[in-house]
Design a protein around this nucleic acid. Sequence first.
DNA 1: CCGCATCCGAATGGATACTG
DNA 2: CAGTATCCATTCGGATGCGG
Lengths: 123, 123
Amino acid sequence: MSPVIPLPVTPADRAACVATEVLRRVGEKWSVLVLALLSERPHGFNELDRAIGGLSRRILTRTLRTLESDGLVSRRETPQRVEYALTGLGRSLLPLIIAIGEWAVEHASELEEARRSAVRGRT
Amino acid sequence: MSPVIPLPVTPADRAACVATEVLRRVGEKWSVLVLALLSERPHGFNELDRAIGGLSRRILTRTLRTLESDGLVSRRETPQRVEYALTGLGRSLLPLIIAIGEWAVEHASELEEARRSAVRGRT
DNA sequence: CCGCATCCGAATGGATACTG
DNA sequence: CAGTATCCATTCGGATGCGG
């Protein structure tokens, strides 16, 4: 729900700003991991909790609520559990995120080198 | 520089976590816009400042420093100005970000509708 | 099993003023 | 021109404990 960027400079820049909105949301710490898990199959709440491990239930709740309100994840309440699943929208976004993950893996060495020279300090 | 996520669950999930690292960085509020501007042509500092407008120079500086230390942007100091430009790495990432922007534009109505039903409150 | 309430520390985003 | 320094507000990530 960030106010986001106020500047439609050129068409390309406008697209960039829109991208930022999405990036900032799925960039929340656990969003992508949850999306990845749900892309395999629907999960219950505690099931996700266990699969991830190392985050408090509060955070998981918030993450799921956010994803749900963005329409990327659906929440279905059944008598014995609550089932979370990817929506069609979420499923359509995932490949783009995976692509970024693959890009990162592919360029891992360059990224790391850049970071190292940065740490050495710019002269 | 976030500590990021500690869990390589499955290969796909690992890719997801790596993606998160990238998303969190380019998800910083002005990163994508700066990248978009630099993709057109190199810019000087104040040139970027004017092109964007509405952000303090401090923020612009931080944004550029971060992008530089990630190897996405280069910084070249000349007698009369400092020139920022996209690196090859940055240029290779940009299309993936643009793709996300296009996805967002394409699904804008669905996104908005999801948000509206979320605001109405879940029953 | 699936949350919500409270409280906290850290990171982000930003305004303003000053500097080589 | 290209920043730095200081200071402040907000948001994010999280620990812990209670509740239907």
